[in-house]
Simulated assay, not measured.
Amino acid sequence: MSDTSGSEDIEDDLLLIVEDDAAFARALKRSFERRGDYRVLHASSIEEAKEILKTESPERAVVDLKLGVQSGLNVVQLLHEHDPEMLIVVLTGFASIVTAVEAIKLGACNYLVKPSNTDDIDAAFTRNTGDVDAPVAGRPTSIKTLEWERIHEVLTETNFNVSETARRLGMHRRTLARKLAKRGVS
């Protein structure tokens, strides 16, 4: 695509959104397209992302951490292997230290907690340096936070299989389901 404002020709960046929530993906796609800097493609699963990569090479990607029963970390790995220069931002509604670290190790350039808007995501693509002035937590982590991080760690290990996660945690499946529902994870 050409820039019609009279400046030099600029091709829009190709952005791939990998998100299984169709309404959220549609809103995010429209919002990025309105900016005029992006041509946006959408995949709702790792399989759809693989199909897109057969014919397209996105410069940027937004990947949801939980894609139904699949882990978005697999998508991050796939995208990074396809193009190590691709800028990948992981979005999640249930962040944990474990998944943040793994996402970065697998090739993501940033990790954001939902709700995040296009401004947040766009800034995350370009923010590739650390902040030495970031506040260091002044209080210890709560038991609830530690519990949630452990649950999420095991969820990730089991590819979001709730029954297997409950078994590994020594917890009744219904108890785990209630905890996930309270966090908005279903």
Rank of each mutant, 00 (worst) to 15 (best):
178 R>T: 12
104 I>Q: 14
34 R>G: 01
16 L>C: 02
36 G>K: 06
108 A>K: 00
138 G>V: 11
107 G>M: 01
64 D>K: 09
39 R>Y: 06
32 F>W: 00
159 N>L: 04
186 S>N: 09
78 L>Q: 02
37 D>K: 15
12 D>H: 13
92 T>V: 00
113 V>H: 06
169 L>E: 08
5 S>K: 02
146 L>K: 14
161 N>C: 08
177 A>Y: 10
10 I>M: 01
92 T>F: 03
159 N>M: 05
67 L>M: 12
74 N>F: 04
154 V>Y: 04
136 V>S: 13
112 L>E: 08
112 L>S: 10
106 L>H: 06
132 V>S: 11
172 H>I: 02
115 P>F: 09
156 T>A: 11
137 A>L: 10
127 R>Y: 07
70 Q>K: 12
79 L>D: 01
177 A>R: 11
114 K>D: 06
163 S>K: 08
37 D>Y: 10
74 N>M: 04
66 K>P: 00
99 T>P: 06
111 Y>G: 03
48 E>H: 04
53 L>Y: 09
81 E>R: 15
65 L>D: 10
163 S>P: 04
113 V>A: 08
168 R>F: 10
85 E>A: 07
2 S>G: 05
80 H>E: 03
33 E>N: 05
87 L>R: 06
182 K>M: 14
164 E>K: 00
17 I>Y: 12
51 E>Q: 11
69 V>M: 13
4 T>P: 08
181 A>F: 07
18 V>K: 02
136 V>N: 10
10 I>Q: 12
167 R>E: 15
53 L>V: 07
110 N>H: 09
48 E>Y: 05
137 A>I: 03
49 A>D: 14
82 H>P: 02
118 T>S: 09
157 E>R: 00
96 S>M: 00
111 Y>K: 02
161 N>R: 01
86 M>T: 10
145 T>S: 06
55 T>S: 14
117 N>Y: 03
151 I>K: 12
22 A>C: 03
84 P>Y: 08
40 V>P: 02
142 S>D: 14
12 D>W: 14
50 K>P: 05
140 P>E: 15
64 D>L: 11
169 L>S: 00
117 N>D: 15
13 D>R: 13
164 E>S: 12
6 G>P: 00
173 R>M: 08
40 V>H: 01
101 V>G: 07
69 V>F: 11
123 A>N: 14
186 S>K: 09
181 A>Q: 14
61 A>F: 13
73 L>S: 05
5 S>Y: 04
88 I>R: 03
123 A>R: 15
102 E>T: 07
157 E>W: 04
25 A>D: 07
101 V>F: 13
